[in-house]
Design a protein around this nucleic acid. Structure first.
Lengths: 230, 230
DNA sequence: CAGGATTGTCACACGCTTATCACCGCCCTG
DNA sequence: CAGGGCGGTGATAAGCGTGTGACAATCCTG
């Protein structure tokens, strides 16, 4: 179990990492918003301890933004660190998608208890949901970023390909517009339609038995793409 | 947005309904398991606030049973009300299919925040369901822009064909004038009657078993077209 | 630093969609 | 019966969206 600790105050951060490590978790640290997102993507933690008050760039002003961003991308459990008395922070944070909160200052035992509770909850939630999407003939494991094709072959996807396929599989049978797919894959205002076309092409090359006659990823001219069988 | 509040303690129940109503939701109350299921079926709420400790019949001993039952039947979001300290309840409830939990006693704002969070998540999940028109022998999915014919064939429609068919299906049995159809398909002041004739022709070619003797799309001379069977 | 994988950019060709023109048959009416 | 409105049919060309190939830029890794 890996925990990402996002906290700008070095002293508090060290205290937290010490605590969680003693409780048997692996700890990764980040001291501002940007490095937090970076660590999140690279280290793939199982839980995030997120300080609300963060120094950061204007567009990622505070922890709420990170909260929302991460919540859009995954169902990773997020535990907020808030200062006692700031109830607005708690409400805002929960609205932004956080799972629970811990008041600073906190006792180590309390912190560990919350972490365990949230992890257990996420576990219950996740076991109900499927960790691996599968459409007929296509098994997709987003964590490993692998698809098992109908013929048994396993194809490794790149990060972008994986995101695109996940977006398509989450909405199997319904049409996603170009803009939807772009923001799902690159984030808000990230990519262009040209980039999407290339990405679709590359994903098809890995996933479709005959990329020229797609069986899964179909284009709806003027609208976007959809994932369906045959 | 309608919320079903299942809570046996009259005082707590009143407090909850007061809170959710002030937040702009409609509230329906049930004070035991049986009436909860009854309200669930009759009032078709959008979310259920479910107290775990309920007095009830043996086979519906507690909230978990209701949780499982409702979860089997629908994907209605369920928010548990649990007493602080009973952590087992939370885990059991989440495993039984609940979406989230709120600890009693709770602050009104926290309750509302949780409700909004759960609704947002359910909304993202449920938008996957597709609306599909169907007239006898014709199944039309406007999102995918495809029709399944009586013989099982699936025909892909173009953007304009899809709009025309949608207009016709929305007004099945009624006569739509040329101008109505033009503005429905091309927008205000967009097309000509000649263009409509061509479009009808192409749509018939895809949808009618015998385009020369239309079974679905009929012309009413001097008026326009109508969609009806045989 | 080299080399590969990943990702972004450009250019082009094909195919489908759609608009427009032309023609024919039908019904109605003067 | 002639003529005109109306609707069905065919063919054609313009236009756009999409697929594709090649290449450059970037990131990551040994």
């Amino acid at each position: 179990m890996k925990i990402l600790v996002v906290e700008d105050d070095r002293v508090v951060a060290d205290l937290i990492t010490f605590t969680v490590r003693r409780a048997g978790y692996e700890a990764v640290m980040a001291n501002d918003a940007v490095s937090a997102l970076r660590r999140w993507q690279e280290d793939q933690p199982d839980l995030i301890l997120l300080d609300i008050n963060l120094p950061g760039t204007p567009e990622l002003k505070d922890g709420f933004a990170i909260c929302r961003y991460i919540r859009r991308e995954s169902d990773l459990p997020i535990l907020l660190l808030t200062v006692r008395g700031e109830e607005d922070d708690i409400v805002n944070g929960l609205e932004a998608g956080a799972d629970d909160y811990v008041l600073k200052p906190f006792s180590p035992r309390q912190l560990v208890a919350r972490i365990q509770a949230v992890l257990r909850r996420a576990n219950a939630r996740g076991s109900a949901r499927q960790a691996t999407f599968s459409v007929k003939g296509l098994d997709f494991n987003p964590k490993l970023r692998e698809v098992r094709l109908a013929n048994g072959d396993v194809a490794a996807l790149t990060s972008l390909e994986s995101r695109l396929l996940e977006a398509l599989m989450l909405n199997e049978g319904q049409v996603l517009t170009i803009d939807d797919l772009i923001s799902d894959t690159w984030g808000a205002g990230g990519g262009t339609s040209e980039m999407l076309r290339q990405l679709v092409r590359r994903l098809r090359a890995k996933v479709e038995p005959d990329p020229a006659n797609p069986r899964y990823i179909h284009n709806i001219p003027g609208l976007g793409y959809t994932l369906k069988i045959s």
